[in-house]
Design a protein around this nucleic acid. Structure first.
Length: 583
RNA sequence: CGGGGAGUAGCGCAGCUUGGUUAGCGCGCAUGCUUUGGGAGCAUGAGGCCGCGGGUUCGAAUCCCGCCUCCCCGACCA
């Protein structure tokens, strides 16, 4: 492959585009890899298209390796399929909808479970046909509320989606594991620094869904990881270690104190430390009871419940919602308090909740035998030394307290800190939702139909390109890993003599030897411009044919390390071939 | 949906407060000469619906009203 910059459809920009914020967006636009066509919609120019194809090739190779078979389904889909699965309504505004001339509803596919399910249903009917893995690499459409950061979060994007079809849960687990391994190979080959986090809430548990996050400061997803191990998880999935139970015998009796004007944890702690109880208290010694109401899907009535967390922590509504999903959650409002006078705002204790048969769940730190300062269920009164397991017994534990930097890692090694990542892959055990919706069965050896169980697995191919740039660039430009680079070598001819001719000749030789070459054969362009462009474009290796040519010397540069090496003209081709192939 | 910002040449921007020649600068582009190892110099040029619609005025990029669009932060996002 030989690309000549004199004719390449490429224009690099000296300045950052005004609408770009993150490095990948700036560099991909400046380097002439992509151009914005509309909000969240991008055109891929020749070099960008090559990178995109290279990433897709890696994905394709690894999908084929696990037995995936590539197909290409339409992106334009009739409403009826998504009506059958319920997603015509479930997807909401994120779905791109359109109508044809006969006023029939269509959509642009955001993901293709429906059509794949129907495709398999139409072709396969025997247990002998399964398992099967089908995939495609294609444009997806989602009308994001706020597209941002260039191709990182677009409304049209390139995605690999695959679907597995199995006869039973063990088969699904195998297909899931195959994908998980394939994804690890793919992202390793692409040179990405990533973590795998559980995407399911703590309560749902299991490994039924995992996300692959490329770690970057500009990522949209927050996750936590450990300082001392490779533990990583979504904030929603972090399990708080439960402290050991303490003996109850010999603990001081619970005592109610008059604590005027202490509606907040802070004022309460200050008050207690001021009245001389013979010991000091911190916010972590208090038990804060947050009242929420939940409503299960389809239900009309709200149920009030109490959530007990250590007073030095807030309830993280996202974690709470994840645990209670699919129920809705809201904080109580004034009218709820008025309707339930036993709830004394600011002074709610466990026993008012338990006595009134309200569900009361506590943070795992509220373990058996732990003693707390908490509300006494009457205005201006708190109770000290209320012992869990003796003075009150919660209905269970709940992961709702905020996660903080420095919390112990759930795996017992190190402490947690928060990091940000870009979701580049997601693997998901769908189960039978779509098979049920479309009646996808296979006839078993016993002559009876068996409902197929499915998995769906995505990789955002265009997003991966941006993620690579996020992780691999410097202030001068992009630094492509060789596997995805648009070329192996950037041959730069600079000078007014025969340098450009020689550069082209060397480039041709390299191309003949199977090296992918970009040659800067532009005339009348100063060396500074060519070097700057080379650094911006980010081809892993540059070969400079310049002022050294008169002495028979060329210069080999490594984009990543910045190392420069002088090499002889006559051995240059051989040396480049070796370094490219050997890399 | 809430908050903030911005629409002027392909790209990046000034001009608007205080209306008044032919709307300007840098980059890029074209032509010529010079230059050629770190975003070159000189000269000449092409390129504009000043977001759209209405209004005020002798006169509007500039003032007023309405609308549209885009960007950023947040909410939302199987």
């Amino acid at each position: 492959m030989l690309l000549r910059m004199s004719t390449l459809f490429l224009r690099t920009l000296r300045e950052d585009p005004a609408d770009a914020e993150v490095p990948s967006h700036k560099l991909m636009v400046r380097g002439g890899y992509v151009r914005r066509a509309a909000p969240g919609i991008y055109s891929w120019l020749p070099l960008g298209k090559m990178v995109l194809d290279n990433v897709a090739s890696v994905v394709r190779e690894e999908m084929n390796r696990i037995g995936g078979q590539e197909v290409l389904l339409p992106a334009l889909l009739p409403r009826e399929y998504y009506e059958a699965s319920g997603r015509w309504t479930e997807y909401g505004d994120t779905l791109f909808r359109l109508t044809d001339r006969k006023d029939a509803d269509y959509l642009l596919g955001p993901t293709h479970e429906e059509l794949f399910t129907l495709l398999v249903k139409g072709e396969y009917s025997s247990y002998k046909d399964f398992p099967a893995i089908l995939y495609q690499i294609q444009e997806k459409f989602r009308d994001e509320a706020r597209p941002r950061a260039g191709v990182l979060r677009g409304r049209e994007f390139h995605m690999k989606d695959s679907y597995s079809f199995d006869l039973d849960d063990e088969g699904l687990q195998r297909s899931y594991d195959l994908h998980r391994d394939a994804y690890i190979r793919i992202f390793d080959r692409l040179g990405l620094n990533y973590v795998i986090v559980s995407a399911m809430s703590g309560a749902m548990g299991g490994s039924a869904s995992e996300e692959f996050l490329a770690e970057t400061p500009t990522g949209e997803d927050t996750f936590v990881r450990s300082t001392a191990s490779d533990y990583a998880a979504n904030v929603e999935a972090v399990q708080t270690p439960t402290p050991p139970a303490l003996p109850i015998e010999g603990r001081p009796e619970a005592q109610v104190h008059h604590t005027p004007d202490t509606p907040t944890i802070e004022t309460l702690v200050d008050f207690l430390n001021g009245v001389g109880l013979g010991r000091s208290f911190t916010a972590a010694d208090t038990l804060k009871n947050v009242l929420v109401k939940t409503r299960a899907p389809g239900e009309a009535d709200w149920e009030i419940m109490g959530v007990g967390v250590p007073g030095d922590r807030e309830v993280d509504m996202k974690r709470l919602e994840a645990v209670l999903h699919p129920a809705e959650v809201e904080l109580l409002d004034e009218s709820d308090f008025e309707a339930n006078p036993f709830l004394v705002k600011g002074y709610v204790g466990p026993n008012a909740l338990l006595r009134n048969k309200l569900r009361y769940l506590v943070d795992p730190r509220v373990a058996e035998g732990s003693a707390w300062v908490t509300g006494a269920d009457e205005p201006d009164h708190h109770v000290v030394d209320l012992v869990c397991g003796r003075d009150f017994t919660p209905d269970g534990v709940i992961e709702a307290a905020e996660i903080r930097e420095g919390d112990p890692s759930p795996d017992g090694r190190g402490t947690l800190y928060t990091a940000r990542g870009i979701e580049i892959g997601h693997i998901f055990q769908l189960g039978r939702k779509f098979a049920d919706a479309f009646g996808l069965d296979a006839l078993g050896p016993d002559g009876k139909p068996r409902r197929i169980t499915m998995g769906s697995y995505g990789i955002g191919v265009s997003r991966v390109v941006a993620a690579i740039v996020e992780q691999s660039h410097d202030d001068k430009g992009i630094i492509w890993p060789r596997e995805v680079a648009p070329a192996d070598v950037h041959v730069v001819g600079t000078g007014k003599g025969e340098q450009i001719e020689v550069a082209v000749r060397i480039a041709e030789e390299l191309a003949d030897r199977g090296v992918r070459v970009l040659v800067d054969d532009r005339k009348g362009v100063s060396p500074g411009v060519k070097f700057t462009d080379a650094e911006l474009l980010g081809i892993p290796t540059s070969l400079i044919v310049g002022k050294g040519l008169a002495q028979g010397v060329l210069e080999l540069r490594d984009r990543a390390s910045g190392e420069r090496e002088e090499i002889a003209v006559d051995t240059a081709v051989e040396k480049v071939v070796r370094s490219v192939k050997g890399a």
